[in-house]
């Protein structure tokens, strides 16, 4: 499935925005202005942009936790400043400052997050089940990393989705690392998407640094699912050059990962640079256009930060919080 030039420009702009926001989040956490933790996206954000790009508002999505799903959500059209405010514990936070890193955009069918890796898989089964039950035509975008597939609940979800032919995309952003372990030491094969075959789920492997390849894969996967063919598994091969969580050491097992290799990946595998080169070569955009898009993205990130800082810190009383535990 080929992309139009307009689609390519939107994808490129959103990747620029996501990477600028990711850098802003790093500035904010390093300045001590974030209340919880942050898991940098780095050069791994092209798959997230592709995952969100072709969903309707009512299509449920669970973002991957790299860059805390900023790429996925802005690509789906969500105003992420309320999510950033959540990270800064502000009243404007999408969860009223109660979560530090959870999103909550129920009207956009992005219902929340979890600190437990793999928690999304059974929920996505529920989203897909509800879509079939209601005959709503919704499709589900279940994003995860490759490390998630150690969790038993992920296998249960593949089983149930395949068995019920649910309209779900299992979108895997495989950066080869699970916290401080290399996935090659945790999984007996080169691609976690090989699991799909056991459930009769079709799968594909895509270059996760190639924004447009990811987008084409997303279009293809969504078409498969929308046609009622049941779930599909897409594995986007990407890279993690930085540590798992900001402030840690970039370990792999007992050893530190090779800083020179990390630097080389960062230099040569930047998905925004790769996409820019494509757009220039195809004469879709000029260098001036690209510079403008990047400048706009930086400005947006600064504006988001300023918006969050202007919002008061959320400090509700215990009584107020007790009244918020249950739905009345």
């Amino acid at each position: 499935m080929s992309l139009t030039n307009d689609q390519k420009i939107v994808l490129f702009r959103n990747l620029a925005r996501a990477m600028a926001l990711d850098r802003m989040m790093m500035r904010v956490i390093r300045a001590g202005k974030m209340v919880g933790f942050y898991h940098e996206g780095g050069i791994a954000l092209a798959p997230g942009i592709a995952a969100g790009a072709f969903l309707q508002k009512e299509d449920p999505m669970w973002p991957h936790y790299r860059a805390h799903g900023l790429a996925h959500m802005l690509s789906k059209g969500i105003d992420i400043k309320y999510y950033v405010a959540e990270h800064m514990g502000r009243e404007a936070g999408c969860c009223k400052g109660r979560s530090s890193f959870h999103m909550s955009f129920p009207e956009d069918h992005v219902f929340g997050f979890s600190g437990n890796i793999g928690a999304n898989f059974p929920l996505s089964v529920g989203y897909g089940f509800a879509a079939k039950y209601k005959q709503s035509g919704q499709v589900v975008m279940n994003c995860s990393g490759d490390g998630s597939y150690g969790e038993g609940r992920c296998h249960e979800a593949l089983l149930m989705s395949a068995n019920w032919k649910l309209p779900a995309v299992f979108w895997c952003e495989a950066n080869g690392m699970a916290q401080h372990s290399n996935v090659k030491d945790l999984f007996p094969g080169p691609n976690v998407s090989s699991l799909a075959a056991g459930f009769g789920i079709p799968s594909m492997v895509v270059d996760g640094q190639d924004l447009f390849a990811c987008a084409e894969a997303a279009l293809q996967a969504l078409a498969h699912v929308r046609q009622g063919n049941g779930p599909i598994f897409v594995e986007c091969k990407t890279y993690r050059v930085q540590e798992h969580s900001v402030g840690g050491v970039n370990y792999e097992g007992p050893n530190q990962r090779d800083p020179e290799l990390m630097a080389k990946w960062k230099e040569t595998l930047n998905p925004l640079a790769l996409a820019a080169a494509r757009l220039l070569a195809e004469k879709v955009l000029t260098q001036e256009d690209i510079d403008q898009i990047k400048a706009d993205a930086e400005r947006e990130a600064d504006e988001v930060e300023a918006f969050c800082e202007a919002s008061p810190k959320a400090l509700p009383s215990v009584a107020e919080m007790q009244a918020a535990v249950y739905t009345a």
């Binding site: 929920l123 089964v125 529920g126």
Partner: peptide, 10 residues
């Protein structure tokens, strides 16, 4: 989890 996801979807 399926029950919870279905509840989120109404």
């Amino acid at each position: 989890g399926c029950a919870m996801g279905a509840a989120q979807e109404g």
